[in-house]
Amino acid sequence: MHPAVSIILFTVLSGAGFGLLALLGTGAAGRPAGWAAFVPFALGLGLAGAGLVASAFHLGRPERALRAFTQWRTSWLSREAVLAAATFAVVVPNAAASVLLARPLPGLGWAGAVLAVATVGSTAMIYAQMRTVPRWRHWTTLAVFLAAAAAGGTLLAGLRWPALAALGLLGIALAAHWRAGDRPLGRAGQDAGTATGLGALGRVRPLSPAHTGGSYVLKEMVHVVGRRHARRLRLLAFLLAVVLPAALVAPGWGGWLAFAIAAPLHLGGMLAARWLFFAEAEHVVGLYYGRG
């Protein structure tokens, strides 16, 4: 799949933002009040909001974005939109109360936490539901998105042990996602033969493409990354997103400076991991084009 910058930014930033908001809502990061609450709430809302704004850039018709709220009964994207909006609707009053009135509202906080997690979950489900992309249609997609939100949130919140736990889970989830995804389409029993229904006749191979010119499908769905390139990038992503942040916040080190370095490193690593999440994902339509 084409790794669109807007979507990569959106999913990584909003994931971390919603993670932080969830922690703030549950009180896991304490219940800061007054100006002490400003920074964490602003960070959480800012990241989540920036991510949502970035996602609008992915739309062909951003001016119609409001329509995306209508189909929550069937569409995970619509659910995500509704949940994200609901999260904001709940978190913003809590944030306002916490900062302006110095009176956190735990009820709203908890509700916001649940909604934030659900938002991240539905973002993940947009991808995890896609039968067309075997690499995504796997529990590890949900796991990666949730663990990344947790890791991002805990790092931003400066919570050492939860952060270490979340990073550990993220590490496992990422590794599992990569391992599971590395079954090529062929191992899922799919190839040009099954895609065309001609497999029973013999080995099927595209002779010439349907068109020599470009197309949306080719650009969006039939993106190819070099294997070596991907391996190196995975290593880098894993180091940045998991290993280095964990090392930085591990006991013996730490302090706010460590978190201040670890959090951006982690986000950088997640951007790389998310790039791979898209770039490595093969869409079954590629079978018609000799990919997969």
Binding site: S208, A210, H211, T212, G213, G214
Partner: peptide
């Protein structure tokens, strides 16, 4: 048409 056959092999 040039999108169908814009180059040849």
């Amino acid at each position: 048409l040039r999108q169908i056959h814009g180059e040849n092999l």
